[in-house]
Nucleic acid binder design. Sequence first.
DNA 1: ATGGTTGCCTCGCAA
Length: 256
Amino acid sequence: MKIATWNVNSIKARLPNVLEWLKEADPDVALLQEIKCQAVDFPAMEFQSMGYQVHAVGQKSYNGVALLSKQPASDVIEGLPGDVSDEQARYVEATVGGVRVASIYLPNGNPVDSEKYPYKLGWMKRLKAHAALLLASEQPVVLAGDYNVIPEPRDCYDPVAWAGDALFLPETRRHFREIVNLGYTDAFRAINPQRVAYSFWDYQAGRWPRDEGIRIDHLLLSPQAADRLRDAGIDKHVRGREKASDHTPVWCVLDS
DNA sequence: ATGGTTGCCTCGCAA
């Protein structure tokens, strides 16, 4: 079972790119972030005609996540549990083929001296609590998405320049580690222990042509999923296409 | 270089 995650930065602006990538990558489950539209405006038919079921959780202009699956998705949860007052569309979770999968768009958190950073840390605390609950179920779980977290210095082209950024602050990394240390496995890092690789390159300042990126899109696997981990990778070439998203797809393959 | 780019749908905000 191939499970992929991709922050598409607007599904409407990215539709041709996403369809082309789906055809070549052929994931069983595709977890999308930043669809930037309401669920009712999500172009579900294009994906259904390719054989995917669609579950979109959206809002106007910002955020929004989607879960595409070839097999039926059951027990769908819309929104991260733990705060009913949180109206931002950043989380959808379902069971597909016996695997509990989630599409996560974790808050960016910049600027750090605004209310956005405590919102990010609070969101991470809620994610940790929910991730612990999922572990207790002892089922295969894949929590995938744009975490907006650079786990380690080697996941960044210039750690010094990013030292004060919400994606790399020690407090951010500590919250991410706490989730991993519950018992989750970073799929890409497990398969590629030494490799320097990125999943995001800023549109600005020639970051892509200079390969100055950061690795912030992750698939975290519960032990029951990690036992079945066969392969993982990053589809870097997708970032080089016309009208590319600033993120590129990240994926893993679980043994069936 | 307090720069640079993209997408929302407005002329600023978010990333």
